[in-house]
């Protein structure tokens, strides 16, 4: 099975640890990056530019916390790529303990967002995400 490049952006280290460990143990990915806030993730975009991998990058982000706002992250990343006229195959996955109606509406309208998942994440959630 071809493994994918995965970014985990979550300010809760326990969540990040569980996701990262589950992915590794099940050999779903060998290229996993964990960020605890948006800024770190955006800063790492440069790293992506140099990478010539043509496979998809799955970005598992959080709905809304103090340090991470998945919606803003999607917008900012998309804008950055649009400005640089680069075409990366970015697949965003939202995670949260709780969603509002508003979030579901945004999900419909946000193209690069592939899935919306309820925490705690289980293995089947992750496998499902990587299907996109």
């Amino acid at each position: 099975m071809k493994t994918s490049k995965i970014w985990i952006i979550d300010d809760n280290p326990i969540d990040s640890y569980i996701v990262k460990t589950m992915l590794e143990l099940n050999e779903l990915s060998k290229d996993i990056h964990v960020f605890s806030n948006n800024k770190e993730a955006l800063d790492s975009l440069e790293e992506l530019n140099e990478d010539n991998s043509d496979g998809p990058i799955h970005i598992i982000t959080e709905n809304k916390t103090n340090a991470v706002n998945g919606w803003k992250l999607i917008k900012k990343m998309s804008n950055k790529f649009y400005e640089k006229k680069q075409k990366f195959n970015l697949k965003f996955h939202m995670t949260s303990e709780k969603y509002t109606e508003d979030d579901f509406e945004k999900f419909e309208k946000t193209d690069p967002l592939c899935s919306i998942n309820k925490k705690p994440l289980r293995l089947d959630h992750l496998i499902n995400m990587l299907q996109y």
């Binding site: 569980i18 303990e97 705690p120």
Partner: peptide, 12 residues
């Protein structure tokens, strides 16, 4: 968030 962590950890 905590309860989800705990439940996630126990599952894991």
């Amino acid at each position: 968030s905590h309860s989800s962590n705990i439940s996630g950890l126990i599952n894991f």
